[in-house]
């Protein structure tokens, strides 16, 4: 049971930070299917940074992980500029742009991972071996029966993510920028007439989206994957988008949805182990979040209220 909670959380939180990223972009009025590409590219930059700095630290040192997270955020943010440029300035179809950005991310990271490996080690491997982050338990909270499992053996990045989610919730709902951002996705004309800068607001939102997704990606790389390879493109970016949709583009609701996803996946895996099924069967349980997504979509899609201007390019001449 404890394992369900610990594994569930360590899956749910990276997913959550990506979903928050998606919410930022969509609330500003830019449809974002590019989360998958953002997280992969961010993770790639983070992993590359980690590989480069690792020789300077002790083998068990955790410092490279934090360096990797910073670089993943920067990498995701920089890569997101591509989506911003296509959607905001070039007025490309935002769905197509998202797909293009994803395909390009896979191609770029795959190619440059092997290129970097060739340059660094001389072998054209498509993997950066990263290892797994250490885990820590929270002293008192983890002793609580049943839900104590939530606080046992946590990755440090989980705490960072929780902190970031709180910060970005505050930014969106309490501050001047957040107020303009949400207006921008509902009625950009209103923001423009009130003296706000639609283009700038959207650019910042998309970059935030990329940075948060990058953090999500590197966290996956440092936990369930233990390396960076093209298998980082497992569709978790799309799961984050699905979580955002059930969460109705609302951060607190999305937190709950992500927890449900995480617990379902971890629960499935533990069931598989408990029933002593052969290894191949884990595939069936890995499928659970996707099946769950489909089912939830069937029940919840009709009542959704996405930001009204999402997906429409902002054209200053059409006021």
């Amino acid at each position: 049971m404890t394992k369900v909670f610990t594994d569930g959380l360590s899956f749910a939180l990276p997913l959550l930070i990506m979903a928050v990223g998606a919410i930022y972009s969509e609330k500003s009025g830019v449809t974002n299917l590019a989360i998958e590409g953002f997280q992969g590219f961010g993770a790639f930059i983070g992993a590359l940074a980690a590989i480069l700095v690792m020789p300077y630290f002790a083998k068990s040192s955790q410092v490279p992980i934090y360096i990797a997270m910073i670089f993943a955020a920067v990498g995701g943010g920089v890569y997101a500029c591509l989506h911003a440029l296509l959607c905001i300035n070039f007025k490309a179809n935002q769905v197509i742009s998202g797909v293009v950005v994803n395909i390009l991310a896979v191609a770029l990271t795959t190619f440059f991972t092997s290129a970097a490996n060739t340059a660094l080690t001389g072998t054209a491997s498509n993997k950066f071996i990263l290892g797994v982050s250490n885990r820590y338990s929270i002293p008192l909270l983890s002793d609580i029966p049943v839900i104590g499992g939530l606080f046992k053996k946590m990755y440090p990045f989980e705490w960072i993510i929780i902190g970031l989610v709180v910060v970005f919730w505050y930014l969106m709902y309490k501050t001047r920028y957040g107020m303009r951002l949400r207006a921008c996705g509902e009625n950009p004309q209103a923001l423009d007439a009130a003296g706000g800068d639609v283009v700038k607001t959207r650019w910042i939102a998309v970059i935030i989206s990329g940075a948060l997704s990058g953090i999500g990606g590197i966290c996956f790389a440092y936990s369930i994957m233990a390396n960076f390879s093209p298998s980082i493109y497992m569709g978790y970016g799309y799961l984050a988008i699905a979580a955002m949709i059930f969460g109705n583009w609302n951060i607190p609701a999305t937190v709950v949805v992500c927890l449900v996803f995480g617990l379902a996946k971890a629960g499935g895996q533990q069931m598989c182990i408990a029933m002593k099924l052969p290894g191949n069967y884990t595939d069936l349980f890995n499928m659970l979040p996707y099946v769950l997504t489909m089912l939830l979509l069937i029940f919840f899609s009709k009542r959704n209220h996405p930001p009204q201007a999402s997906g429409q390019p902002w054209d200053q001449s059409r006021r």
Partner: peptide
């Protein structure tokens, strides 16, 4: 200026 089409955010 009050525009012909109001520039308001509905859910604000």
């Amino acid at each position: 200026m009050v525009h012909q089409h109001f520039k308001l955010v509905d859910n604000y």
